[in-house]
């Protein structure tokens, strides 16, 4: 083990440090953070990291976590193979 990393988004391997640095730079929503670093865009679609990022934003802005703007939820809730849409394997 070379470095001690704290992972926030397991699917995309995004660390707490990376999230905090983006918040310091002025990114203010989960969606903005997702767009620049892909947190929440992996197989679990943000189920693990969404609220962890929300907590960091809440801490930084001194607001309750429930007031952090949620990202937009779109189908599909999990990745699907293109072959499935095309009608089979």
């Amino acid at each position: 083990m070379q470095t001690k990393e704290t992972i926030v988004c397991r699917c995309e391997d995004i660390t707490l440090e990376e999230i905090k640095s983006l918040i310091d730079q002025g990114y203010r929503t989960i969606d903005e953070i997702k767009r620049v670093i892909r947190a929440g865009m992996g197989p679990c679609q943000g189920r693990t990291c969404r609220m962890l990022i929300a907590q960091e934003l809440a801490k930084y802005y001194g607001i309750p976590v429930g007031e952090v703007l949620m990202p937009t939820f779109r189908p599909t809730v999990r990745p699907v193979k293109l072959g499935t849409f095309a009608g089979g394997e």
Binding site: T6, I7, C49, M51, L52, V80, T84, G87
Partner: peptide
């Protein structure tokens, strides 16, 4: 079964349950 399915229901009951939370600490992905 690797097929994309479409369903047109009159009513929907969402009973999807919950997923486990994670916490942050160094090396939490070991």
């Amino acid at each position: 079964r690797a097929k994309h399915l479409k369903i047109n229901p009159k009513k929907i009951i969402v009973a999807t349950g919950a997923s486990e939370k994670m916490i942050t600490f160094p090396n939490n992905d070991l």
